[in-house]
Structures are given as C-alpha cells and as structure tokens.
C-alpha cells in the first residue's frame, strides 16, 4: 500500500469546493425536507380521507423506493415533460422530497406527543384552528422533534454523494474526477471518507446533547 501526501495536497483545493457544495446541498435539502415534511404531516391530520389517503400512499411510495432511482426519474423524465432545471436544483429537490417523507413521521410523532389537555384547553379558550396549531400545538411539537430532525440531517449528509450520479460536483464528484485525471484513487476517496466521519460524528454527538436538553 502506498500513500502519496502530494496527491492529498493536490486534491485539497478541489476538496474544499466539494465540501462547500455538499454543505449547500445539505442546507437547502434540509430546509425543503423540514418544510415539506410539515406539510405532509399536517395534511395527514385533515379530517378528509380524500386528502389523507393519497398523501399517505405517495409518501409511503417515496419512502420505500431508492433515492438514486427517484433522482434519475426527476433528472431524465422532467425534461421530457418540459420542466428543465439544473442538475443541482433537481438533486436538492430530490433529496429534500425523499427526506420529507421521513421528517413527516417525526412531526407526526411530535404532534401526537402533545398532551390531550393542550388541545382541550385550546378548545375551551375558543381558539380558532389555525391559531391552535400555530401558537399551541406546533411550538410544543417542534421542540420535541428537533433531535430527531437532526438525525435525519446527518442521514441526508450521507446521501449527498448520490448527487454525483447526475453530474453534481460535490465531494465524491470532485474525488472521482481527481482520481480519473491523476489515476490516484486511494488518496481522494480516503480523504472524503475521513471528512464524512469528521463531520458526521461530532454532529451525532451534538444531536445526542440536544436530545438530553430538549426531550424530557
């Protein structure tokens, strides 16, 4: 086994570009998944079965099929339907949509964990539905789900390399390009592998600390 520090040094500028893009994808994907997940969770609470059933079926479908194939679907099929978006936009949307079907379950659990007395108090105070949700239920529900959402952000981080397959130059994309240009696979791939551990492990410690503080 040979290890070439020169190759590591050559790769580092590319690595920082890739890291920056990975973090951007992660931030945007998280925002989409938090927002969409909340929308799904709220739709699943509507009284009408005509809303609940399709939302439940679609999210179940998205959750149980591979992100990679969904990504290809969006990347190749949407242009056929006349919707054009850059690879990065498609990728961010795909990852956000995929994870929204997970965060939806997190929100659901958080909403269900709000004590029934809170609902009854809102009814007793004659609060309108939107106000009940906005100032009573959601603030309590979201506080409880922050650590669980954090776990999904970490999971999402580990799925960002998939975007490489649709030509997005995040960390793995940069590493592969560098490897193919220089015929040095060991160094760039190991560097990004270590980088993922160095980001994911402290992040998971942070989530655990949050869990202790926010969830009683």
């Amino acid at each position: 086994m040979t290890w070439d520090w020169g190759a590591v040094a050559d790769f580092m500028p590319k690595f920082w570009d890739g890291l920056l893009l990975t973090l951007q994808i992660l931030a945007l994907g998280s925002l989409i998944s938090f927002a969409l997940g909340l929308v799904w969770a709220l739709l699943m609470r509507t009284p009408s079965r005509l809303v609940r059933w399709p939302v439940g079926a679609v999210t179940e479908f998205i959750r149980n099929t591979p992100l990679l194939v969904q990504l290809f679907f969006l990347f190749y099929v949407l242009p056929e339907w006349g919707v054009t978006a850059s690879a990065l936009t498609t990728g961010v949307f795909a990852i956000g949509l995929h994870y929204s079907t997970y965060t939806m379950q997190v929100y659901r659990a958080g909403i269900e964990a709000v004590p029934a007395g809170q609902w009854e108090a809102a009814t007793a105070l004659n609060l309108p539905v939107t106000r009940t949700w906005r100032v009573v239920i959601l603030p309590q529900a979201i506080r409880r789900v922050v650590p669980a959402l954090g776990n999904y952000v970490i999971a999402m981080l580990k799925d960002t390399p998939i975007l490489m397959t649709i030509t997005v130059m995040e960390m793995l994309g940069e590493a592969r390009l560098f490897a193919q240009q220089n015929f040095q696979f060991t160094e760039p791939l190991t560097v990004i592998g270590v980088a993922f551990i160095l980001i994911a492990y402290p992040a998971s410690l942070l989530v655990r600390a949050l869990e202790r503080r926010l969830v009683r």
Partner: peptide
C-alpha cells in the same frame, strides 16, 4: 462510528477502487 459515519456510496467506491 466509522461505518455509520461514512456514506454507503463512498464505501462502495472505496471497496471497488481502493
């Protein structure tokens, strides 16, 4: 922690190329 820390796709690249 090491194997949960890296992405599955990076592991696949690693096994195939490194």
């Amino acid at each position: 922690e090491v194997f949960r820390g890296t992405s599955a796709l990076i592991m696949i690249f690693w096994v195939f190329f490194v």
